[in-house]
Design a protein around this nucleic acid. Structure first.
Length: 762
DNA sequence: TTCTCGACTTAGCAACTTCGAC
DNA sequence: GTCGAAGTTGCTAAGTCGAGAA
């Protein structure tokens, strides 16, 4: 495809990105890098910028940024503000912990949602009533590319909804009465019902255009973590070499730590410090006075106990395992589904996160803190007014029950580490998620149509008189060319120090007018999402290079590279260029277009199926490299590679032996010319062929595995690659779809599998 | 206009399950 | 049937982005 201005080539084919140069270094080195301290003293006086226009804006933005970002800056005012923020957050967390925020939330429910729902439900003719287009719904409506096929519009009315609702209730009752006595027939009956649901082609139906997400929603609420079971007396905790019986609350938190003893986390200072601080909060005053030093705590006995338990689980008999499986299945049947608009849909995560120690990624300042137990009193339930509301566990109550059909979640709670909200939502195979996914790819396809115009414009903007426009244009170039993330601003001290494009700092880029025979090379080295290192050396256009030199002028390493840009400004600009365009659409677009190009380049219709799959994986890998989707090499990688090599060696000697035998058989036949010897030649020839195929398969497997060592293919496959490209490729080249997508993925992409023909073009 | 928050997507890891060789 | 490797699933952290409050 033409639209790529040579982007991928250096990266994708030659692997010039860090994946092949720096990024595969020892993981520890990466971790060291992650530890790089960005919190340097910011008191030093800022040098004045030479460019006057730049200076004026820069000062303003600098002030803002200082206030916003650097908690350790010299500004008292800023410190106070930061403190205030912290306080507010703590209060919020405390509030959600203690008492529900009744007023606001109740107001919300009473004043808005039910009214909306009521009026909509009353509208009998308009199952999708004429919307008073709000902004969000207008965009959906305007999105012409995302028009449903209306060949089979199925409009089910409330009566039918009620009927289905009752079926669901009957199911539930049956489950309640005899949960474990499912006959085979009943199971099959359920299966066919399930099949019916699986076959539901929501993509052939109309969708809501008024911003509402559903009309009817009924579910059983979440499943809570099992209560804490105190340790048997024989399992001891030792302090300073002496056994110490802990109170149940302190003991529970101690078990969280003891279970992680083999993990690197427990060796980290921040983790230990945070854990100890939170653990002490759970101790009795007596425990608090005794236990004052984590280094004197010995959790090894507890650790051994949990390891033994885990081992015992593995050693369970088939029957015991089966029993657990069945019990789990029962739980899924009861809580794992909901009824949304006449259809039984799978819930993605119906279990509440159990208490434990927070495992932040990278250098997270809050790692080790105690994630508290979530109780029914913390949970907000969302369901429709006319549904059977989920019952809280006996003796408890929900924080709130609301009926907001403008959102997709079924339940939510506020977690205590960051004060953010967690949700229970539907499975990716559900209509609500699928629609959104489809829409995402349609937006990316619309970008394809205007990407050339956008590229021309940002090239023009590199020459702009206004610094803010130049910065915007260079940032957009990086987002487009390198598939960088937008890079929202983050609150310092709350999370690990990671950046995206707009939040890049001076210290993250190095400029080389000439490097290894290439001109105008930019070296990127920063930690992105999940503290994954992005390292890349890339030649850029001269104008970009000159602009970067200008942006870096008179700045300190910890200053922002794009000091007059943030994601909000960028996205507002993108919105003007194309309806629905945001920074992340470029990632989706470039990922999908790269897959399509690579598949065209790499596959040949004459190839065997394994060879085709290898090509597919290579195309997928090109995207994963582009998007910097890395993984830690599997622990057993070296060993499994060795085993595979042994197999290859064996197969090779088997092959040469078989060839010798064939040669001998041929000689025999030449001498005797009889049928028996002719037959023997045929048999030997087939044997050689078979071994050759086996050898090839093994070699392909080895190549694939080696190339995949540190690349995660799943993320791009699941989130960035328009599934219709893969489906079309499979259909065109007669590759079974099962070779590309497993069961879960096929469920998620059912819409694409159904609608994409072999000639589909992204 | 700035800032915060809610809702949602994207992400890697680890536990669990299945597969295939012996 | 056993064992190790590969594949799958679940979990939950960490992003993006837009709306609305301050």
């Amino acid at each position: 495809m033409s639209g790529d201005h040579g982007r991928g080539d250096s990266q994708v084919n030659s692997g010039s990105k860090g994946s092949d140069t720096h990024k595969h270094k020892d993981k520890h080195k990466d971790k060291e890098h992650r530890h790089k301290d960005h919190k340097k003293d910011k008191e030093r006086e800022k040098l004045k910028h030479s460019n006057s226009e730049y200076k004026e804006h820069s000062e303003k933005k600098h002030k803002d940024k200082e206030r916003l970002k650097h908690s350790n800056s010299g500004s008292d005012k800023h410190r106070e503000k930061h403190k205030e923020k912290e306080k507010r957050k703590e209060e919020k967390i405390k509030l959600t912990h203690d008492k529900p925020k009744k007023e606001k939330e109740n107001g919300y429910v009473r004043d808005r949602s039910p009214l909306v729902i009521k009026s909509e439900l009353e509208d009998d003719n308009g199952f999708y009533p004429s919307p008073q287009h709000n902004k969000a719904s207008k965009r959906e409506y305007d999105d012409q590319e995302f028009d449903y096929k209306l060949k089979k519009v199925k409009v089910e009315h409330d009566k039918k909804a009620q009927k289905r609702k009752h079926e669901y209730e009957e199911d539930e009752e049956e489950e309640d009465i005899k949960p474990k006595k499912k006959t085979k027939d009943k199971k099959e009956g359920k299966k066919s019902k399930k099949d019916e649901e699986e076959k539901w082609k929501w993509w052939e139906e109309e969708r809501y255009t008024d911003g509402s997400k559903w009309r009817f929603l009924e579910h059983r609420g979440p499943v809570f973590a099992p209560p804490y079971e105190p340790l048997p007396d024989k399992v001891r905790f030792y302090y300073d070499g002496k056994p110490l019986k802990l109170s149940p609350a302190a003991e529970e938190v101690a078990t969280f730590f003891s279970k992680m003893l083999d993990h690197e986390y427990t060796t980290k200072d921040i983790f230990r410090k945070n854990f100890f601080k939170d653990w002490r909060k759970e101790m009795t005053s007596e425990e608090k006075s005794k236990i004052t030093d984590l280094n004197k705590c010995d959790f090894s006995d507890m650790n051994e106990y949990f390891k033994a338990q885990s081992e015992a689980r593995k050693q369970m008999t088939k029957e015991e395992k089966q029993k657990i499986k069945e019990e789990n299945e029962r739980l899924i049947q009861e809580y794992g589904f909901c009824i949304m608009d006449n259809h039984k849909e799978r819930i993605g995560n119906f279990r509440i996160e159990p208490p434990g120690l927070f495992r932040g990624r990278g250098d997270h300042p809050k790692m080790g803190m105690l994630k508290r137990r979530i109780r029914p009193e913390d949970i907000i339930i969302n369901c429709s007014k006319d549904s059977k509301q989920p019952k809280p566990p006996p003796g408890t109550k929900w924080k709130e029950v609301r009926h907001d059909n403008k959102v997709t979640w079924l339940a939510s709670w506020t977690e205590n580490i960051q004060g953010s909200i967690k949700y229970i939502m539907l499975n990716p195979s559900s209509r609500i998620k699928g629609e959104k996914d489809w829409q995402k790819y349609e937006t990316a396809r619309r970008l394809k149509k205007c990407v050339d115009r956008i590229r021309t414009q940002y090239r023009e903007d590199w020459k702009s008189k206004e610094m803010r426009i130049r910065q915007r244009a260079v940032a957009l170039y990086f987002i487009d060319k390198l598939a960088l993330r937008a890079g929202n601003e983050k609150e310092e001290g709350e999370t690990a120090d990671t950046v995206g494009c707009c939040s890049l700092r001076v210290e993250h880029v190095k400029l080389y007018p000439k490097l290894d025979e290439q001109e105008y090379v930019v070296e990127f080295d920063f930690l992105g999402k999940d503290s994954i290192r992005y390292y890349n050396k890339i030649p850029v256009e001269k104008r970009v290079f000159k602009n970067l030199q200008l942006f870096l002028e008179n700045k300190q390493p910890e200053d922002d590279l794009f000091d007059r840009l943030n994601t909000s400004i960028l996205n507002k600009h993108l919105q003007e260029l194309m309806d629905g365009l945001t920074a992340k659409v470029f990632r989706t677009y470039n990922a999908s277009i790269t897959l399509q190009q690579q598949l065209k380049e790499l596959t040949c219709s004459d190839d065997s199926i394994p060879a085709k799959i290898l090509s597919y994986n290579r195309a997928n890998r090109a995207v994963a490299i582009l998007c910097n989707h890395q993984r830690a090499p599997p622990k057993t990688f070296e060993k499994s590679m060795q085993n595979l090599q042994t197999k290859i060696d064996e197969k090779q000697s088997q092959l040469s032996a078989a060839r010798k035998q064939l040669k001998a058989a041929k000689a025999d036949h030449k001498a005797s010319h009889d049928d028996r010897s002719k037959k023997a030649v045929e048999v030997k020839r087939k044997a050689v062929q078979r071994i050759e195929e086996q050898l090839m398969k093994l070699q392909v497997q080895a190549t694939d595995r080696e190339e995949n060592k540190q690349i995660a293919l799943g993320t791009s496959k699941l989130n960035y690659l328009d599934p219709r490209i893969s489906v079309a490729w499979c259909k065109k080249l007669n590759v079974p779809i099962e070779k590309i997508y497993n069961k879960t993925q096929r469920e998620k992409f059912a819409w694409a599998i159904d609608m994409a023909e072999k000639d589909y073009e992204f």
